[in-house]
Design a protein around this nucleic acid. Structure first.
Length: 505
DNA sequence: GTGAATGATTTCGT
DNA sequence: ACGAAATCATTCAC
C-alpha cells in the first residue's frame, strides 16, 4: 500500500459517497443543518481560492484559520477522493518515491505531510548521462579544472607546454602565468559550482516546504513532488552545463593565448642565431645538420631540436630564394669561420700534436666537431692518407667558406667559374642543394682545370681583399687580421689540399 | 601604423 | 619521416 493509498485510507477515503464528510456529519462535529454545512464548505473553498489575493500576513492568518476550521478534515477527504479518481497511483520505482516511502512518515490526520529533504545527487543519479555534459566534464578534468586540485592544473599545463614545444627559460614564467590563470578559472568554477548546488538545494528545500505547506490543504502525491524536484534539477543542471561550457571556453582561450606556439613566438636570442648561422654558413654546401648536430645545436642554443629543424628549413628556403640578400651575412660568417679555422691551424702547428684536435675556436666560433675535424683533415692530408667521409665533408665546408669569401672579394678572374662555385653556393640547377661533395669531388679532374683556386695568387688575394675592404665590405675583423688570417688559412689548408691534386699554387 | 624579419605550421612530394 | 614551399602570426625597427 503506497503513501497515497495510506493517506486516502487514513482519511477514510474509499467509502461510498463522501465518507469523510459523512463521518463528520455523523459524529456531530459537522452540525445539523445541511444547508449550513454546504455554506461552510462553500466559504472554505471561496477563502482558499481568494487566498492569493490577500497580503502575506492576511493570507497566513487566513490559512491558519482554515487549517483550524472544523470542516477542514472533511474538505481534505473530499479532495483526496477527487484526486484519487483523477490521478492514478504514482510509480514507486523512482529514487524520489523510494526516498519518500522509505521515510517513517505518512499523511497525518490533519493532512500534514512530513517531506524529507531530497538530495540533488539522488535526483541526478537517475538522469541519463548527457554526452555533451560528459564531454565537458572530461575536458575540465583533462585541463585540470575539475578533479583533484593538486598537480591537476600544473600537470595539464606542463603537458600542454610540452606538446607545444618549449623555448627554454622563457617557458617557466609563461607556464607559471598559465598555471595562475588556470588556477583562477578553477577557483571561479568551483565557487560557482558550489553556489549553484547550494542554490539548487535551497530552492528544492523551499519548494518542498511550500508543498508541505500546501499539503495541509490539498493532497500532494509523491509523483508531483518528484516531478517538481526533477524540474528544479533540470533547470539547475542546464545552468551548470552553461557554467561548464563557459569554463571550457575560458580554458581554451587561455590555452591558445599561452600555449599556441604561433602566438607566443619569440625570436631566438642573438647568440643562438649566431650559432645557427655559423653552422649554416660553414656547411653551406650541405646545410643539413645530422641528428647529432641538431641535438648539439639545440643544446647550445637552448632550443628544441624541432626548432633547430625549423630554423634550418626556413634558412635554406630563404637563402635559396634570395641569395643576394644573404651575401653580406654569408661573408661575415665565412670570415669568422675562416678566422677560427686559422686559429686552429695556428694552435695545431704550434702544438704539433694531432691528439689535441678540438682546442680551436675563437670567441663565438662554432665549437663542435668542425674544427677538430678540420685539424684532423689537415693531419691526414699532410700524411697523404685522406680517407673522405666526415672529415672530408668538414674540410669541404671550410673550403666552401673560403671560396665564398674569395668569390665575394672578386678574387676569381673567371666569373663563370666563380658563379658556378658560389652563386648559388651549393645549390644545383634543380634548385636544391647538391649532395655534400667529397674533397675528391671538389678537386676532381672534371672540376680541375676550371677550378681557379689553384690559380689564385697571394697577390691577387691581397688586392681583392684590400679592394673589397676599401668598398666598406662587411668583414667584422680589422684589415690586418682579416687578410692574414685568410691568407694563412688559405695557404695552410686549401693550398696543401689542392697542391696534393694539382701540384702547384 | 607599416613593412621587413622571423619562428611555426601546413601542405605536398618523395 | 623528412624536406621544400607556401603561409600564418608575431616581433621589431622605423
Amino acid at each position: 500500500m503506497d503513501d497515497q493509498t495510506r493517506l486516502m485510507h487514513s482519511h477514510g477515503v474509499g467509502m461510498a459517497g463522501h465518507p469523510g464528510l459523512a463521518q463528520h456529519m455523523q459524529d456531530g462535529t459537522a452540525g445539523t443543518d445541511g444547508e449550513g454545512r454546504k455554506q461552510d464548505i462553500g466559504d472554505i473553498l471561496q477563502q482558499i481560492m481568494t487566498i492569493t489575493d490577500q497580503s502575506l500576513d492576511e493570507a497566513q492568518a487566513r490559512k491558519h484559520a482554515l487549517n483550524c476550521h472544523r470542516m477542514k478534515p472533511a474538505l481534505f477527504n473530499v479532495l483526496c477522493e477527487i484526486k484519487e479518481k483523477t490521478d492514478p497511483a504514482p510509480s514507486a520505482t523512482s529514487e524520489i518515491t523510494r526516498c519518500i516511502t522509505s521515510q517513517p512518515r505518512a499523511w497525518s490526520r490533519d493532512g500534514n505531510l512530513s517531506i524529507p529533504v531530497l538530495s540533488i545527487r539522488g535526483g541526478q543519479e537517475e538522469e541519463p548521462p548527457d554526452p555533451q555534459l560528459m564531454r565537458l566534464d572530461n575536458m575540465l578534468l583533462a585541463e585540470g579544472v575539475a578533479g583533484p586540485e593538486k598537480g591537476g592544473g600544473s600537470a595539464a599545463a606542463a603537458a600542454a607546454a610540452a606538446a607545444a614545444g618549449g623555448v627554454g627559460a622563457d617557458n617557466s614564467t609563461e607556464h607559471s602565468d598559465y598555471r595562475a590563470k588556470l588556477s583562477q578559472i578553477r577557483q571561479i568554477y568551483h565557487t560557482e559550482l558550489e553556489k549553484y548546488e547550494q542554490a539548487c538545494n535551497e530552492f528544492t528545500t523551499h519548494v518542498m516546504n511550500l508543498l508541505r505547506e500546501q499539503s495541509r490543504t490539498r493532497p500532494i502525491s509523491p509523483k508531483e513532488i518528484e516531478r517538481m524536484v526533477s524540474i528544479i534539477h533540470r533547470k539547475f543542471n542546464s545552468i551548470q552545463m552553461q557554467l561548464k561550457q563557459s569554463t571550457c571556453e575560458a580554458v581554451m582561450i587561455l590555452r591558445s593565448r599561452f600555449l599556441d606556439a604561433r602566438r607566443k613566438r619569440r625570436n631566438f636570442n642573438k647568440q643562438a642565431t649566431e650559432i645557427l648561422n655559423e653552422y649554416f654558413y660553414s656547411h653551406l654546401s650541405n646545410p643539413y645538420p645530422s641528428e647529432e648536430a641538431k641535438e648539439e645545436l639545440a643544446k647550445k642554443c637552448s632550443i628544441t631540436m624541432s626548432q633547430v629543424s625549423n630554423w634550418f628549413g626556413n634558412k635554406r628556403i630563404r637563402y635559396k630564394k634570395n641569395i643576394g640578400k644573404f651575401q653580406e651575412e654569408a661573408n661575415m660568417y665565412a670570415a669568422r669561420t675562416a678566422v677560427s679555422a686559422t686559429n686552429v691551424s695556428a694552435q695545431g702547428s704550434q702544438a704539433n700534436s694531432p691528439s689535441t684536435p678540438n682546442s680551436a675556436g675563437s670567441a663565438g666560433s662554432f665549437n663542435m666537431s668542425n674544427s677538430g675535424d678540420l685539424f684532423m683533415s689537415v693531419q691526414s692530408l699532410n700524411g697523404d692518407s685522406y680517407q673522405g667521409g666526415q672529415v672530408g665533408a668538414n674540410i669541404q665546408s671550410q673550403v666552401d667558406t673560403l671560396r665564398h669569401v674569395i668569390s665575394q672579394t672578386g678574387g676569381y678572374s673567371d666569373s663563370l667559374a666563380a658563379s658556378q662555385m658560389y652563386s648559388p653556393q651549393g645549390i644545383n640547377t634543380n634548385g636544391g642543394w647538391q649532395d655534400a661533395p667529397t674533397p675528391s669531388s671538389v678537386t676532381s679532374p672534371t672540376e680541375g682545370p676550371g677550378s681557379h683556386i689553384g690559380r689564385v695568387t697571394v697577390k691577387e688575394m691581397q688586392d681583392s681583399l684590400m679592394q673589397r675592404e676599401k668598398q666598406d665590405c662587411c668583414f667584422m675583423l680589422d684589415k690586418e687580421n682579416t687578410f692574414f688570417y685568410l691568407l694563412e688559412f688559405f695557404m695552410t689548408f686549401p693550398i696543401v689540399f689542392h697542391h696534393r691534386h694539382y701540384g702547384s699554387f
